[in-house]
Nucleic acid binder design. Structure first.
Lengths: 192, 192
DNA sequence: GTCTATAAGACGATAGAC
DNA sequence: GTCTATCGTCTTATAGAC
C-alpha cells in the first residue's frame, strides 16, 4: 500500500524497523550501519536487503508513519476556527505523539541525518513546515518564534532516559502543563 | 596544557575543530568521517592525524571547552545559598553558553555519539550529572523532573535554523524569559 | 524468504618520504 | 608540519544458490 515498501509481508519487515528505531536512538541514524540493523533483527545483511532496497528506504519506513501522525494533528488543528483551541490541539497532539513512541520522538526531532532525509522529500518536509506555521500562528514576532522553537525541541524530553522510570501518563500530563506555561496558554477547561 | 592535545601549536588544529563542529551539526558526529573533516579543513586525512591521534580525540577537543563553560556555571550556582538565586544563575548561565556558540549547543545536547563519549569519560559525565542535580534541586518530584528535562532539551532552540535571522541578544532574552515561565520562576529583579 | 559469496569502495589508522 | 601510499577492516549493495 505504501510506496516505500518494496517486498515482504510484514513480520520480518517490522522487526527491521523496530531494530532501526532502537539503534537510531542509541547511535544516531548516521552512526548506524546495515550490519548493526541486521544483527539486531537476527538476520543477515542480505536478508535486510530483501525487504529494503537501500538504507534510505529504512529511514523512510521509520519516519513516514510518525510524520503521518503529525500530519493528522495538523489537520485537526486546521479544522478549528479559534486560535487558542487550535493551538491546544497542536500541543496536545504533538505531545501525545512523542509519548506514544518515546524513542521515536527523540530520533525524529533531533537527528541531523533524519532531518536531511526529510528535507530531500518535499512531501515529508511539507508536514513539518505546515505544523510549524500553525504553531507560530498569524503573529510571528521574535518572542513567539523562540517559544515555538523551544517547545519543538522540548518534545525530546519524552525520551529522556532520566525520565524512563515515570509512567507515560505522568510524563504526558506534566509535559502538557509545562508546554502551556512555556507558550503562555491558559488550560482550556479543567485546571491542573 | 590540556591532556587531549597530542601535537600541533594551534592554527591548523583549530581549523580542524571548527570544521568538525560544523559537520557534527550538519550530519551528526556519527555521520561525519575523517575524510569530510579533512576536506573542510583543506588538509589531507593524514594531516589531520598529525594533530589528533584518533577520531575520538577530535570529539573530545570539541566537547571539552564547552563542558568547561558549563562546569563554571555549576560552580557559580553552587556558591549561592538561596535556591531561587542559584536556579536563576543556572538557567542564565546555560542559555548564555548555547547562545555564545549556537551550533555547538545543538551538538552537545542532542547528539547520541557525543553522549556516548561523555558517558565513557567520567570526568565529563560528572559535569552533566552535577548540573542536572542542581537544576532539579532538593525536591525531585515528577513535575520538576519533567520540566528540567524539557528545559535541557529546549536549549537546542538556540541553534534552530528557523531562528538564524534573529540576533543573539534577542534570542537570549526570549529564551531566558520562556525558560523562567517553563520552570515556574519569577524574574529575579527587573521584569520584561 | 533467507542464505553465501563477493564486488567496489570508504572507513579509521599507520609508515615513511619530504 | 604536511604529504603520498598503504594496511586491514568495514561499508553499501548485488548475484545467484537453496
Amino acid at each position: 500500500m505504501t510506496s516505500t515498501a518494496t517486498r515482504g509481508t510484514g513480520a520480518a519487515r517490522q522487526r527491521i524497523i523496530d531494530a532501526a528505531v532502537a539503534l537510531f536512538f542509541e547511535q544516531g541514524a548516521g552512526g548506524t550501519s546495515l550490519q548493526m540493523i541486521a544483527d539486531r533483527s537476527d538476520m543477515t545483511k542480505a536478508a535486510v536487503y530483501y525487504h529494503f532496497q537501500a538504507k534510505e528506504d529504512i529511514l523512510l519506513a521509520v519516519i513516514t508513519p510518525a510524520l503521518e501522525g503529525v500530519a493528522q494533528v495538523a489537520e485537526a488543528a486546521a479544522a478549528t476556527r479559534s486560535r487558542s483551541a487550535s493551538l491546544d490541539i497542536l500541543i496536545t497532539g504533538l505531545i501525545d505523539q512523542v509519548i506514544e513512541n518515546r524513542r521515536l520522538g527523540a530520533v525524529l526531532w533531533a537527528d541531523p541525518t533524519i532531518a536531511q532525509v526529510v528535507v530531500s522529500h518535499p512531501m515529508l518536509q511539507d508536514v513539518g513546515i505546515r505544523i510549524h506555521r500553525q504553531l507560530i500562528g498569524p503573529n510571528p514576532d521574535p518572542a513567539t518564534r523562540v517559544r515555538v522553537s523551544m517547545f519543538g525541541a522540548s518534545l525530546k524530553a519524552a525520551s529522556d532516559p532520566a525520565l524512563a522510570d515515570l509512567d507515560a501518563d505522568t510524563v504526558r500530563q506534566q509535559m502538557l502543563d509545562a508546554a502551556r506555561r512555556l507558550l503562555g496558554l491558559r488550560p482550556p477547561r479543567s485546571a491542573t
